[in-house]
Computed example of a mutant assay.
Amino acid sequence: MTDLYLNSIVSGALYLLGIFSIITWVLIIIKGVQHYRLAKRDRQFTKQFWSASSLDAATSLANDASPKSRLASIGFEALHVSEGSGASSDLEHSWDRQELLERHLRQQIQKEYQSLESGLAVLASIGSTAPFVGLFGTVFGIIHALSAIGKNASASVDVVAGPIGEALVATGVGIAVAIPAVLAYNFYVRRLKVTAAELDNYATDFVNLAQKNSFRVAKPVAKHEAAKGTAPHQGNPANPQGVYA
């Protein structure tokens, strides 16, 4: 009964490490695909944004496809709110244009950071606990070996080889699970810091562009209006960029 109990503990530790390994590699793949797609879309949006003829023209580029495009979209919305708020009748609109823009950009950067940070705590936890789970199995494997020696009154190889082998396997598996988790965590933390720095730089550039534009941008033409040929610039040739928010 004791041998069965000790064997079940060692097997349970190995099964747990197997689950940890599966979770680790699933997260590695998911985070890798996420970072690759977002980086590719960010490069595309950045190229289009800086190729725009003006900040007003860039409003039509903002979408939800990448962190920078979402940041731009939030920035344009903040400029529309600040321009159309009129008299400050509540706390939401009590900020001046620049403060409101910076506040919205800062909040969106935090949201993007939290989105990219998801899953990293799991990798860190697995990387730090997997060796101890393996060590836990190792301890009970050694106890099993000692129990077998006492029961058989012999320390021959055929008596201790099985339990000691299980103990060593548990240690090796624990280390094998922890290494990819730690390496992946460090890599994605580095990527997260680089992305956050890029978003901070882009937000600074966006504020500077908005300042040059007097913190005013034209609302993009609605699709249904463009289809009907009722874009704002058609009714007002003097204002080809559209009506400010």
Rank of each mutant, 00 (worst) to 15 (best):
D96Y: 09
S88Q: 15
E83F: 15
S94Q: 10
F136R: 04
E102Q: 15
T138S: 13
S125E: 01
R70T: 03
V133Y: 10
A130S: 14
I143S: 05
G137F: 09
L146E: 08
E117V: 01
E112V: 02
S69T: 06
A121C: 02
L55G: 03
L105F: 04
H144P: 00
G86V: 06
S66F: 02
Q107N: 13
P131W: 09
I149V: 15
L55V: 01
V139G: 04
R97G: 02
A145I: 01
L71C: 08
I74C: 10
G141K: 05
P131I: 04
S115A: 15
L100Q: 13
E83L: 12
S154M: 07
G141E: 07
A153Y: 04
V122P: 00
A161P: 00
S82E: 14
I149K: 09
F132K: 11
D90C: 11
S115H: 13
G137E: 11
F140E: 08
A161K: 08
Y113N: 13
A58N: 05
I142R: 10
R103F: 12
L91M: 13
I109R: 15
G137K: 08
T59V: 07
P67E: 12
R106M: 08
S69M: 07
S156E: 14
A72I: 01
N63E: 11
S128H: 04
A62P: 01
G134L: 06
I109Y: 03
A87M: 14
S54H: 07
D96A: 02
G84S: 15
K68I: 09
A161I: 08
A65W: 05
I142W: 10
S82H: 09
A121P: 00
I74F: 04
E112I: 02
D56P: 00
I126K: 09
I142G: 06
N63V: 00
F132G: 04
K111A: 12
A153W: 01
A130P: 00
S154N: 14
H144F: 11
S85E: 12
F132R: 09
T129H: 03
L55R: 04
V122C: 09
V81K: 15
A148C: 04
F140P: 00
E99Q: 15
Q108H: 10
L120K: 13
L146A: 06
I126T: 03
V81A: 12
E92G: 10
D64R: 14
E102D: 11
T138A: 14
E83D: 10
L123E: 10
F140T: 11
E77I: 01
F132W: 11
F136K: 02
S125N: 11
S89R: 15
E112G: 02
I109T: 05
G134C: 04
K151Q: 13
S82F: 06
P131Y: 05
E117T: 04
S85V: 11
T129W: 01
D96T: 05
K68L: 14
T138I: 02
D96I: 05
L105P: 00
L79Y: 07
K111I: 11
